[in-house]
Design a protein around this nucleic acid. Structure first.
Lengths: 191, 191
DNA sequence: GTCTATACATGGATAGAC
DNA sequence: GTCTATCCATGTATAGAC
């Protein structure tokens, strides 16, 4: 499904970056084409439906990017508690490195900001959240949790991490994410 | 600090509603004045610095509104676990009632969306989060938690609830909030 | 203090040359 | 397929009559 021309890639990459940093409505097509170097004609050649279609592609990519991130963090660590903590520490470090300028999660610009205006974008975010939930759930399933408990905790993890990221961006401090990390053992206790 | 004229109130009330439903950048001043009935001149009379100043007032009000909501929910219930659960159920019901059309928390439109563009709005959101954290912490302190533990759990509660609300809006389902509620006893265990 | 008209920039989108 | 010029709506902001 990958398209080769570099013009396409340039547009998608800069659009994704700008949406993440500034938000959906704050990012104009003019800025995207200006920063990408590609002309506006190319944008509408690749995305005949304009901004919404471009954003949809960005959400799908962000979804896959996070999935890779999750699998990378989880693969080498069997214990789900340690695996999740390793992920959270990684996210906290990355956020501090970019000085909290990049609200990585798609939740804010793609779903909160567009839920009222574009059903397609909202649904793409929903799919992403469900995909991530499933990855968490699989990890918990493999560790001996039953299916419904694993699904429930997966949902909880997705929502808690999104919330911690929002506070992290607002407070410009990764303490929310690290505090969450500290409480993961209690949350994922099999009891 | 309350200003009397109804024109002022009309503008602030409709602006607050539109920011909450649509987001900051998606809401234009033209729409605000059109829906409020008041003319544009009044808006700039009361808010000489335009949109940003108006949004700032909306954030401050939203902050106070949530504070009242928290105190109302907490006052009649001594046990912090039951008090928080009562709050979460109330939020879940309200969200379902408006069919998930109103992302009440200020976090999305006021901080995620504006952190890159307005330091004043980001700081107002930060203040709100800190105020709420303190209310949670006081409740926990009164229940016997020590000061640092109470502050830590207060931060965690704010971030978890914001995250659950984001998922609730995206999935159009209050399960994330109810799932969080189910795990409050584990989180707030004094152990 | 209230309201209208208008200015100027930027938004998304399109047509058509090359 | 690439690029430019342009259209129209909407954005924020201001001037000035009443």
């Amino acid at each position: 499904m990958a398209t080769k021309p570099s013009s396409y890639e340039n547009i998608v990459n800069t659009a994704a970056r700008l949406f993440i940093v500034q938000g959906y409505h704050a990012t104009g097509l003019n800025q995207i084409i200006s920063e990408s170097g590609s002309p506006k004609g190319s944008l509408y050649y690749y995305f005949p439906n304009g901004k919404e279609e471009l954003a949809l592609e960005c959400i799908k990519r962000a979804n896959l990017f996070v999935q890779d991130q999750l699998r990378d963090s989880f693969a080498p660590i069997a214990d789900p508690v340690l695996a999740v903590q390793s992920l959270l520490r990684r996210l906290a470090e990355e956020a501090a490195d970019c000085k909290y300028k990049e609200p990585m999660p798609i939740g804010y610009w793609a779903s909160a900001e567009t839920a009222a205006v574009s059903e397609a974008l909202r649904m793409a975010s929903q799919t992403a959240f469900e995909d991530w939930q499933n990855i968490y759930a699989e990890k918990l399933l493999a560790a001996g949790f039953n299916k419904s408990k694993a699904a429930e905790l997966g949902l909880l993890l997705v929502s808690m991490i999104e919330g911690a990221m929002l506070l992290m961006i607002t407070l410009r401090d990764n303490k929310p994410l690290l505090t969450l990390s500290a409480h993961i053992p209690v949350l994922l206790r099999k009891e």
